[in-house]
């Protein structure tokens, strides 16, 4: 049975990449938006650009995984194609993970491109294993987050609207542009309930040249967030078929 599920997860992800992700809207939201955003800050203060790279990578992870993810499930529910998937020998959890994996693979491609370009152009020397340790759980976490928001609502446009609030909150409060340590203490507490804060902090450590053990703590917290999003999302999706 687990083999049927694994096969289903893999092929659903591949199909989603082909039909939803490798399309101009997903690519523009996933990569063009974070680059434009960061470039705006670079033009304001070119000297600090290296400091912005972890934030740029974090934003690429956030936007590339969530942009299409937040709509595909509702879109397919509406068209009846999700029901088609459910007729195959795959559990609802398997279908959900297939959808999440589609976002993860696309996010991984986008993040890899942004990271490689940043490293080459700015002559950075990140720790690759630590980068992977932070990027991988972040990709799964934010893809699940997008899918969770999607199953919380009925309409495609509702999911996009619902997604924009936490996304923009995280851009401003998770240390993407402005360091969390320099924020007022009340905002710092708030920042630590946002998952992107741990992604940015972990990425900063990976690029620091001297990462310490707190990086493992960040990875662990990211995994905790992942479970926090994934289980309720599967439960909510199951309810749609009761």
């Amino acid at each position: 049975m687990w083999r049927d599920n694994l096969r289903g997860i893999f092929y659903i992800a591949l199909k989603d990449i082909k039909t939803y992700y490798l399309k101009p809207p997903a690519i523009s939201w996933g990569i063009v938006f974070p680059i434009t955003w960061i470039l705006a800050f670079y033009l304001r203060n070119p000297g600090d650009f290296k400091e912005l790279v972890p934030g740029l990578i974090a934003m690429t992870i956030l936007f590339s995984t969530t942009s299409a993810e937040a709509v595909v499930i509702n879109f397919e529910l509406r068209l009846g194609t999700l029901e088609r998937l459910l007729l195959a020998p795959i559990s609802i959890g398997g279908i959900f993970l297939g959808k999440v994996l589609g976002g993860v693979i696309f996010g991984f491609l986008m993040t890899t491109i942004v990271t490689i370009i940043s490293v080459i152009v700015l002559k950075l020397h990140p720790s690759i294993p630590y980068l992977i340790l932070i990027i991988l759980p972040s990709l799964f976490l934010f893809s699940s987050f997008g899918a969770l928001l999607c199953v919380m609502v009925k309409e495609v446009f509702e999911a996009q609207t619902l997604l924009n609030l936490p996304r923009f909150l995280m851009i401003f409060l998770s240390g993407v542009i402005y360091p969390v340590s320099k924020m007022p203490s009340a905002l710092q507490y708030f920042a630590y309930i946002l998952p992107l804060t741990y992604t940015v902090a972990g990425l900063k450590q990976s690029f620091s040249g001297n990462p310490d053990r707190t990086l493992f703590l960040y990875a662990f917290v990211l995994i905790l967030f992942l479970f926090l999003f994934i289980f309720p999302a599967i439960k909510l999706l199951s309810k749609k078929f009761e």
């Binding site: 049975m1 049927d4 199909k15 039909t19 068209l79 009846g80 194609t81 029901e83 088609r84 007729l87 195959a88 020998p89 795959i90 559990s91």
Partner: peptide, 21 residues
């Protein structure tokens, strides 16, 4: 139910394959 799904085919009232494929 997963065992059952391997051996049955279902044609729903509304044709629900993927439009883009």
């Amino acid at each position: 139910i997963l065992q059952i799904k391997k051996h049955i085919g279902v044609v729903p009232e509304i044709s629900n394959l993927y439009d883009e494929l």
